[in-house]
Nucleic acid binder design. Sequence first.
DNA 1: CACGAAGTCAACCTTTTGGTTGACGCCGGG
DNA 2: CCCGGCGTCAACCAAAAGGTTGACTTCGTG
Lengths: 212, 212
Amino acid sequence: MADRDVIRLLLADDHPIVRSGLRAVLDAEPGFEVVGEASTAQEAVQLAGELAPDVVLMDLQFGSGSHGAQATAAITDRPDAPRVLILTTYDTDADILAAIEAGATGYLLKDANPEDLAAAVRTAAAGQSALAPAVAQRLMGRMRTPEAALSRRETEVLQLVADGLSNQQISRALFLSQATVKSHLVHIYAKLGVDNRTAAVAAARRQGLIRR
Amino acid sequence: MADRDVIRLLLADDHPIVRSGLRAVLDAEPGFEVVGEASTAQEAVQLAGELAPDVVLMDLQFGSGSHGAQATAAITDRPDAPRVLILTTYDTDADILAAIEAGATGYLLKDANPEDLAAAVRTAAAGQSALAPAVAQRLMGRMRTPEAALSRRETEVLQLVADGLSNQQISRALFLSQATVKSHLVHIYAKLGVDNRTAAVAAARRQGLIRR
DNA sequence: CACGAAGTCAACCTTTTGGTTGACGCCGGG
DNA sequence: CCCGGCGTCAACCAAAAGGTTGACTTCGTG
């Protein structure tokens, strides 16, 4: 798909100002053509099919909760799909992993300068992965210390803790005994290197292990 | 300061892409002239003095922690200061109040479309306040139910709770006795209608009373 | 100036959480 | 097939947090 002389781009971001900025930056770059803009995740999926761009520049958080990661999965799921390059302000582990699992070719942060952005788009168009240094570092760290990964059930419990529920409320919500909830919590504390629930929530939030 | 035929603008945002977008959107609008760009809060204060713009478009969160609110205060502190229009993605109560206290003339969210943005700049240049609907709503809500308003000290304590500190750690961090910390917490719980610290953090986060 | 809100602290008691040990069944990979 | 991780639960004790009462100071506003 990089056989053409021009790289065709689709911009997907809910902020009009950011779309204008991307268009201004990328149109100034030779060899790029912005063929469309999407302001919602749904629109991005639709336009990716209709316009057949080479690269989709995708924001992760579209206002009001819809997720760029799901849109990414929908786009990359099809045969002959465009490359998806994530462009977002957040760099939590959960976001990065979700995007990569969804089939994203690269992951950039919005503080990237125009040159880096253009270079990443070219890299992505050629089918190679493009990661911002901070993102690459996070991934390396994750590889090095995989013990921070919580199990499914643990994440479930911790999310309820973050929502402000007591152990008793959690036990009722998940049909468990309080003993089991406490057991999960002890494991969570050990994995996160903390010793109380609020610190666990703070740490998990920092590392992007739970929904913010 | 709106005596001239052209409104002179200074853009302050750490994201090159956003600056490009703002420049593209505002240059297209008649009667606007972008006279400078700042990528840090310090630079914004400096350029606001040197360039004497009519309006400064200011992001609140510059990467690595420096605060746009402080820069706003520094800018509006001088005689014959430009109007400062906050342009940010966040809309927590704490942010909004801090910005307004710092002397900001308006508060916009980055999902604003170009027309709204241009209108807000004109309003600000004329010296009138310009608030995004969501922001105005928050302020109104704050007026209507002031009982949910935490005092400065309470907010400070709650932020440390959200960071995962125990009462003892908080007492040391703020040079208080644990009794005082507990006293603050009791008041916080009452105001937020909860009965434990994690629920308080969750509620405060929902209501935008603390930094996320 | 008087009042209330905010901030500080103490003492006391109850409830919740944290920490440990041990146990049982299930499942998947070596 | 056996071991380890996961998920479940119990009992127990120690520590932290929650709740109440009361008291003192400061500070801004009416």
